[in-house]
Design a protein around this nucleic acid. Structure first.
Lengths: 118, 118
DNA sequence: ATAATATATGAACAAGTATTCATATATTGA
DNA sequence: TCAATATATGAATACTTGTTCATATATTAT
């Protein structure tokens, strides 16, 4: 974060463009939430977990086995996914089953894929 | 990355579920590219830059002024956006104008917003 | 109650990253 | 060619984050 905005000789953008940008720009809190959400998707382990859950709900141990990571690592990441409401869970005895929270996850990942294959 | 997969007493997922997951799971390279793409969106400064460019193409200095960051910081981030083909640029004399590379950016950010306002 | 097991979590460490500062490059005009 | 200006970039620093290891919690069965 800086507090000094640089000024080049003159502003190229018209005043109404600048006003339009300021109108469209979400407020700081929303921007932070947005960035936070994308950060969650910005990790291979978490993406793998989500892809695994595409197929069906799964317990922590199965997820760990499928994506070849330790139970601890998976559990830590599930906490983050949970906190961002990308997965939900239900307990059944000693086992905790995780599932995708909603279809947003699929469509977000799908759109990302679209961009990189282009 | 770990090399030891944990094993709980028994696997809950059926074999065909596991096979289905492995079929659906993109290969390691694609997963990395995906994560990489989302990492780019996972920063407030870069999101601000993209939102600014929603309105119109803009020179580095105008962007810096609008989002209140130094020219250097903006330039560094533009390099990352450029490398991930989220923005394109054209030079006009001393000035370099940046613009959104395509409409993917808008739809990706839109979908993110949808999730967090829900 | 005790043992066994599935999951969660705190602390530590390593790796990655965003900003700043100083400076380099590129372009224009005099 | 030289000065001015817009942008780019390398190095340093502070901060964030993912994994590991050890351990805690929760649940079940004996």
């Amino acid at each position: 974060m800086s507090d000094t905005a640089p000024t080049c000789g003159y502003i190229h953008a018209h005043e109404d463009t600048i006003r339009a940008v300021n109108e469209r720009m979400p407020d700081e809190d929303t921007l932070c939430d947005l960035a936070e959400l994308y950060k969650v998707f910005g990790d291979t382990t978490r993406i793998k977990i989500l892809y695994a859950l595409f197929e069906s709900e799964m317990c922590v141990c199965d997820i760990a086995s499928i994506i070849n990571m330790t139970q601890s690592a998976v559990s830590h990441q599930l906490r983050i996914l949970k906190a961002n409401r990308l997965v939900r869970y239900r307990r059944e005895g000693k086992t905790v089953f995780y599932a995708l929270a909603d279809d947003h996850v699929k469509s977000i990942l799908g759109q990302g894929l679209e961009h990189i294959v282009e």
